[in-house]
């Protein structure tokens, strides 16, 4: 069964935004879903891009509150 996890990096700054994302994804199994909350600007510009570069599947990017976005990503195999 694939599980759903969540991670809030709205209070973090570069480089911890993608450091935390990467460390979290390392704990997940292939096919698991991670929902990431982040702010617009640097995190929104870079986190989804680097996830795609690393082969993960970004399923959804949604504006959920003023400057807060939710990204849904599916973990790829290692």
């Amino acid at each position: 069964m694939n599980k759903i996890y969540s991670l809030d990096i709205t209070k973090e700054h570069c480089p911890i935004t993608f450091v935390k994302t990467k460390l979290m994804l390392e704990k997940l199994e292939k096919g698991d879903i991670l929902e990431i909350l982040l702010t617009e600007g640097e995190p929104l510009d870079n986190v989804p891009k680097t996830l795609t570069e690393q082969g993960h599947k970004v399923l959804e990017i949604k504006n959920i509150d003023k400057n807060i976005f939710k990204i849904v990503v599916e973990k790829a195999g290692n």
């Binding site: 570069c14 450091v19 994302t21 680097t50 570069e53 690393q54």
Partner: peptide, 11 residues
Amino acid sequence: FTLASGAAAVN
């Protein structure tokens, strides 16, 4: 260490 951790995080 900012560069190191950031670069490692993007593989």
